Each structure stands twice: as structure tokens, then as C-alpha cells.
Computed example of a mutant assay.
Amino acid sequence: EALAAKKARGAQLGSPQNLTRAAIEKSRNIRQANARTNQQNQQATRLGGLLQAQGYTLQQIAEELNGGGYRTRRGKLFFPSSVQRLLQRRTLYKE
């Protein structure tokens, strides 16, 4: 409540000087590693790759993943853009 009141008075919360290039890069690397090592993502990536090899579009792959109960690491539905990132990651980081 106190922070909300302070913000309502126009105060800037947080410290932009802490967002250095190194901190941003470290955060990005952690998020990417979390996405790569997430079991749901790994399973969805394998299925997505198989469907892509059969000629499915990104939209169709997203529909299949969502219909099969798969969700992103953050529990969201798949969209063509998230499927595209998933499949790109697969080619960048082959096991």
C-alpha cells in the first residue's frame, strides 16, 4: 500500500541505473536457459518438430500443442510466434 501511495504521488520506483548491459544480458541468458531446460518446452519442441516435418503450419502446430494440453513455460497458450521461437531454439541448441 505504501509503494502504491508513493507511486500515486509521482515518485519513480526502481533504479534504472541498475539496468546495465551486463545485467540485461545476464537476465536474457537465464530466461533462455529456463526455456531450454523446461520439460514441457522440450516435449512441445519435439512434437512441434515432428509436425513441422509433416508439413504443418505454425498455426496448426500451435493448435495441436494447445489441444494436447501443452503450455509455455509460463503456463500460456502457444501461438504461431511462440511455436516459431520454440522451433528456432531447437535448431540453435541441438541436444
Rank of each mutant, 00 (worst) to 15 (best):
A5H: 11
T45C: 10
E63C: 05
G48N: 01
S27C: 03
A23G: 10
N38Y: 00
T91C: 05
E25M: 14
Q54H: 07
F78D: 02
L77Q: 11
Q60L: 01
G14S: 11
L87P: 00
I30H: 13
L77P: 10
K76Y: 13
Q88K: 07
R89Q: 10
T57W: 03
L87C: 05
L77W: 09
A4S: 08
S81R: 01
R46D: 02
F79G: 01
E25S: 15
R73Y: 08
R31G: 08
T20H: 12
N29I: 08
K7Q: 04
A62C: 01
A5G: 05
Q12D: 12
E25G: 13
G69D: 15
L47H: 09
R89I: 06
N38I: 07
Q54I: 04
Q59G: 03
I61G: 08
S82Y: 12
R28F: 10
K6Y: 15
L51H: 10
Y70N: 04
Q39S: 12
I61E: 01
R31P: 06
V83P: 02
E1M: 09
L65K: 04
N38Q: 08
T91V: 13
G75Q: 14
R73L: 11
R71M: 06
N41S: 03
S15D: 14
R73N: 09
R28K: 13
G14Y: 14
G55R: 02
R36N: 01
G75H: 12
I24E: 00
L58R: 00
T37V: 07
G10E: 11
R31A: 06
Y70S: 06
Q88Y: 00
Q39M: 12
R85Q: 12
G49L: 02
L65Y: 02
R90W: 02
E63A: 00
L19N: 08
Q43P: 09
A35S: 06
A5Y: 09
G68H: 06
N41R: 00
R71P: 10
G68M: 08
N41E: 04
E1K: 14
G49M: 09
Q59C: 05
A8C: 09
Q84R: 04
V83D: 10
Q84I: 00
Q40T: 09
G48R: 03
R90V: 07
T20D: 00
Q40I: 02
R74Q: 12
L77I: 05
Q60A: 12
L50H: 00
S27E: 07
Q43L: 14
Q84M: 05
A8G: 09
L86Y: 00
L51S: 03
L77M: 14
R21A: 11
T20C: 08
N18G: 14
E63V: 01
Q40K: 03
F78H: 08
Y93H: 09
A44D: 07
A2C: 12
I24L: 15
G48K: 00
L86T: 00
A22R: 14
G55K: 04
G10Q: 10
A62G: 07
Q32P: 02
N29Q: 15
L19V: 07
Q40M: 05
Q32K: 11
L19Q: 06
Q32D: 05
R74H: 07
L47M: 12
K76H: 07
A33N: 09
A2D: 14
T57V: 09
A35L: 06
G55V: 01
Q52W: 03
T72W: 06
S15T: 15
P16M: 01
L58Y: 02
L19S: 12
S81A: 09
I61W: 00
E25Q: 11
A4T: 11
A2V: 13
Q59M: 01
R9P: 00
K7T: 07
N41A: 01
T57S: 09
